[in-house]
């Protein structure tokens, strides 16, 4: 059990490292370096830039050294909490990301909870009552959920809300809380606004999980131990929840590792359509404006949060499956 945890932890570290390299690549890829862009920007706004100032900047970011040194310098800066400055906003990157990162997490986590809360009972019902009318209806909804990309769903729901209810259903806060400081009232306002983005983000995942749960449970329901349990005289509901559902939970939980990155991904683009004050629109803007330190940092943070989510789900999985606990994997 300990070795498993350590293995997972090392893998998570490795993944974070890979993400940092990719984030650095994103910062590096555009033609021209950061300092050139920064100086050009300063110059255009009328600030006189001395060559010494430029040289200082170049050295700070190590732009005159080979790429791997630049990467190491960047990492060094990050470990000191310096993520660079945003070209566009002219403030440190962290100041801009701030709340938006936590709001992204709030949206994503509530979407995961929504996905699970819905997919689990529906999947169980669909499998146990296979080929019932409800099963067909759920399967149909599931396929729609699978086929409609989340940003399209957001667009359609926005259209419906705007057209038929005359309301803008986007956003995460009511206007009166938009600029307000955090308070219980604001938190409650946020919670009230979360279900819609959670629904939109979660639909595709829910559809997938229903299918996974249904298929797994159908497999499990055919196994002899179900007949054994039935022959004991257990009631059907208790039996199904204790034995086959328990077994079908494993692949279900292990999907969390992939569900989380999937939802974070989706949240970026859905936030754009719904006008959520999360990190998605910021990332897009940074990318379009070639504000690369901001963009790279956002990708890095999103990656790290995803890896953490995946790591937690792995530990959860180990905790539920005795076979993994005993280190007799497959």
């Amino acid at each position: 059990m300990l070795t498993y945890t350590i293995r997972r932890f090392l893998l998570a570290l490795l993944t974070i490292w890979a993400i940092s390299v990719l984030s650095f690549a994103i910062i590096q890829l555009p033609p021209g370096d950061y300092v050139t862009a920064y100086i050009a920007q300063l110059a255009s706004s009328g600030v006189d830039v001395t060559p010494e100032f430029a040289e200082n900047l170049r050295q700070q970011y190590g732009l005159d050294s080979p790429v791997y040194v630049q990467y190491l310098k960047w990492m060094q800066q990050i470990s000191r909490g310096n993520f660079g400055r945003s070209l566009e906003w002219r403030v440190p990157v962290l100041d801009i990301i701030g709340d938006r990162l936590w709001l992204t997490m709030a949206v994503s986590v509530s979407a995961v909870l929504f996905t699970w809360g819905l997919a689990l009972p529906i999947g169980i019902y669909s499998a146990v009552r296979q080929y019932s009318i409800a099963d067909y209806i759920f399967t149909f909804i599931g396929f729609i959920g699978l086929a409609v990309p989340s940003f399209l769903l957001a667009l359609i729901l926005m259209y419906v809300g705007f057209r038929y209810f005359g309301a803008n259903i986007g956003g995460l806060f009511s206007p009166e809380y938009l600029q307000a400081d955090w308070s219980l009232g604001k938190l409650w306002d946020l919670i009230k606004h979360l279900p819609l983005p959670a629904l939109i983000l979660g639909t595709a995942g829910t559809a997938q999980l229903i299918r996974i749960m249904r298929a797994n449970l159908l497999d499990e329901l055919r196994k002899p131990y179900v007949i054994t349990a039935r022959a004991k005289g257990m009631s059907e509901l208790r039996l199904i929840l204790k034995y086959p559902v328990r077994a079908a939970m494993n692949p279900f939980i292990s999907t969390l590792g992939y569900l989380f990155p999937f939802i974070i991904s989706g949240s970026i683009i859905v936030a754009l359509v719904l006008g959520l004050p999360t990190i998605g629109p910021l990332l897009l803007r940074a990318l379009v404006a070639q504000d690369m330190f901001l963009a790279g940092t956002i990708v890095l943070f999103l990656g790290i949060l995803t890896v953490l989510g995946t790591f937690i789900s792995d530990i959860l999985l180990m905790w539920v499956d005795p076979r993994i606990r005993f280190e007799r994997r497959e």
Binding site: Y225, T228, G233, R246, P322
Partner: peptide, 19 residues
Amino acid sequence: RGGEIALVFQEPMTSFSPH
């Protein structure tokens, strides 16, 4: 079931839940 009539099944490998 299980009380008055009990069943021993043919698959000892899979007749118990592994969980």
